[in-house]
């Protein structure tokens, strides 16, 4: 009854709201114990929901066939069963697809990062006619859906006999048209803009050439941007499946490609009519495959996470 009387402004001025607001938006005083507890509780709850699919994936992947059938077993398996991983390892043809994935993600990423830094440097340090047009086109390349350009590219590659070869992904990266290249160019533009010009100008007075200035002075000072670009680039190339499926089909098989035809691959290794019921394809094996798929990225992420988080703030991806 009375609740209806409270207007919105009153609600905002209510002590409880103020307390919540206080700890959310950086309160003037030190945070009290209650707000700290609320903060951690919220973070843990959101974090748990956020990670739930991953936890589910992991716990399912170590369930034995018995555990899968047992309705009592939800989150904690009765035993650590690694048979699923053995099968998934074979089905994914892991050692080969892993190598292919590393090749397909690392090589274009390195080239893309290098080219993006050159282009970003040109945009940040030189005045020339048509720069706004270049920026506009950059944004367009980011927005254009892949299926609007992929068919002619595929036909050209087919004529050149490049379909199925890693070159089909490397060439665009080499020309600054790799997967999401525009973002990396903007990152480099941003970080070169924020660096002082003094050193470069004095080197120019000493007669150093543009390329030399770029490689000896600009590159080392923009190191965080290189690390960020490289990490994001590798991650995005690794996870990309639209281009890889079209350009590499019939040639190299990457891990995500193999995962997307997991069922077929499983049934050709373990024909459903032949194997016993425990060796049929079940969700535990699928989840093991999925987990094996993201494992290399997880490892990379946990090793490099400090860089990942910190340098993004340094380079300021916002592009303002």
């Amino acid at each position: 009854m009375d609740e209806k009387e409270i207007t919105v402004t009153q609600l905002f001025r209510h002590p409880f709201t103020l307390r919540i607001g206080g700890f959310l938006f950086g309160s003037r005083a030190h945070r009290g114990l209650t707000s700290s507890i609320i903060l951690y509780a919220l973070l843990i709850a959101i974090g748990f929901i956020y990670l739930q699919p991953l936890l589910f994936m992991f716990t399912t992947s170590i369930k034995s066939p018995n555990d899968l059938l047992n309705p009592m077993v939800q989150w904690v398996p009765t035993e650590l069963y690694l048979g699923n991983y053995e099968k998934a390892f074979r089905v994914l043809n892991y050692s080969q697809t892993l190598l292919a994935s590393i090749l397909i993600s690392v090589v274009p990423s390195v080239l893309q990062t290098l080219v993006a830094s050159i282009v970003g440097y040109g945009l940040a340090r030189y005045r020339f006619w048509g720069k706004p047009i270049v920026f506009l086109l950059l944004l367009t390349t980011f927005v254009i859906p892949p299926q609007n350009t992929v068919i002619p590219q595929m036909l050209t590659y087919r004529n050149m006999g490049l379909l199925g070869s890693p070159l089909a992904l490397i060439l665009p990266a080499l020309m600054g048209q790799g997967y999401r290249s525009a973002i990396f160019i903007l990152i480099f533009y941003q970080s070169f803009m924020s660096l002082p010009k003094v050193l470069e100008e004095s080197a120019r007075l000493d007669g150093a050439s543009d390329m030399r200035i770029f490689f000896t002075i600009a590159v080392p000072s923009a190191l965080p941007a290189y690390i960020v670009s490289l990490i994001f680039s590798i991650v995005w190339y690794w996870n990309e499946t639209f281009f890889t499926v079209i350009f590499l089909e019939g040639g190299i098989t990457t891990l995500p490609m193999q995962l997307s035809r997991f069922t077929q691959a499983y049934e050709s290794l373990y024909p459903p009519g032949v194997v016993n019921i425990f060796d049929r394809l079940n969700e535990a094996v699928k989840m093991s495959g999925t987990f094996l798929n993201i494992l290399p990225l997880l490892l990379m992420y946990f090793i490099l996470q400090r860089w990942f988080v910190q340098s993004v703030e340094m380079t300021g991806v916002t592009g303002e």
């Binding site: 991650v235 996870n239 499946t241 995500p256 798929n293 993201i294 990225l297």
Partner: peptide, 9 residues
């Protein structure tokens, strides 16, 4: 999730 969000996964 930035790291692991891919189509097949």
């Amino acid at each position: 999730p930035i790291v692991i969000t891919s189509g097949p996964v």
